[in-house]
Amino acid sequence: MAGQATVVGAAGFVGARLAARLQADGWSVWAPAKGDPALFERDLGTVFYCAGLTADYDRRPFDTVEAHASLVSELIRADRFERLVYCSSTRLYDGQRKDVAHEAEPLVFDPADPRRVYDLSKALGENLTLTRTGGRGAVARLSNVYDWADGAPGFLSEWLIRARTTRDLVLESSPNIARDYIHLDDTVEALIALGDRGQGIYNVAAGRLSTNADIARVFERAGWWVRFTGDASPLPPPNASAERLAGLGVVARPVEDVVAAYLEGLPA
């Protein structure tokens, strides 16, 4: 149901698409600039918290903590919202040694590892959202979100963008690397559903792992030539269960189907 929405991080990859979709659906959307004090002073309606650092979190650890935990802490303390949807990540499962990861299972972190600042700060943001909002918070653990718009981040996004200009693709990766991919539009659909009726934690994921080789076969069937420069075979990450998300009526499209349709629409 449309209403008042505030998108924190609306200049980012997920936040920009979410804000555009909400506006198209008839929501009154406010996208505060970074540092705007009105975030703690005005009525916010449903807040979609999409702010965060991904690629450069290790180089900017203090900014990472600010974006993932400190700012949302201040927002919750000001208490000017009706609901809060906090964007986290399925990367929080990386410390688990199991095939499938469910939302209710405890997380495992090594606080002595400096690269865990991303996971630990996201986990703190999750905790505040779940325990300090009086039951008005929901957490979206996003898997690997992709798109083909110019500037879309991530390995698969860059792969898809390059496919517009060449059919000979040499990729600096291994065919054996597996990830759970979810398209940006499916991600936005899930976030809106969480804002409407979500309670607790949800994996915003397809619920299945696809290797680079799986996706490369889709390209090859469509007439592209794909070669990888590496051959590493790392252990796959835990597969994030998407059962809770399906309970909200949101089922992400398989990445192979989305990629096939995209390639079919490109000029020969």
Rank of each mutant, 00 (worst) to 15 (best):
G3M: 02
A5E: 08
G12V: 02
V14K: 06
V14S: 02
G15V: 14
A19W: 05
A19V: 06
A20I: 13
L22K: 06
A31I: 00
P37K: 07
A38D: 07
F40L: 12
E41M: 13
E41N: 15
R42S: 12
L44R: 04
G45P: 05
A51Y: 08
L53Q: 01
A55W: 09
P61F: 00
T64Y: 05
T64D: 06
S70T: 12
L75I: 10
I76G: 07
I76K: 06
A78Q: 12
F81H: 05
R83F: 09
Y93P: 09
D99Q: 15
H102Q: 04
H102W: 06
A104L: 05
F109H: 01
P114W: 03
Y118V: 00
L120N: 04
A123L: 10
A123M: 02
G125F: 12
E126I: 08
G134Y: 14
G135R: 14
G135T: 14
V139F: 07
A140P: 14
N144Y: 12
W148C: 15
W148R: 15
G154I: 08
G154C: 06
L156E: 03
L160H: 13
I161Y: 10
A163P: 04
D168P: 06
V170P: 02
L171G: 15
L171I: 15
Y181N: 07
T187G: 03
E189Y: 11
A190V: 09
L191F: 06
G195M: 04
R197G: 10
G198T: 05
Y202V: 09
G207F: 13
L209V: 06
L209G: 06
A216N: 03
R217N: 01
V218R: 06
A222T: 11
G223I: 08
W225Y: 09
V226E: 10
F228P: 00
D231V: 01
D231C: 02
D231R: 04
P234S: 08
P234A: 05
P236G: 07
N239K: 05
A240G: 08
A240V: 11
A242N: 06
R244P: 00
L248R: 01
V250P: 05
A252D: 13
R253P: 05
R253L: 09
P254K: 03
V255N: 05
D257G: 09
D257V: 08
A261S: 10
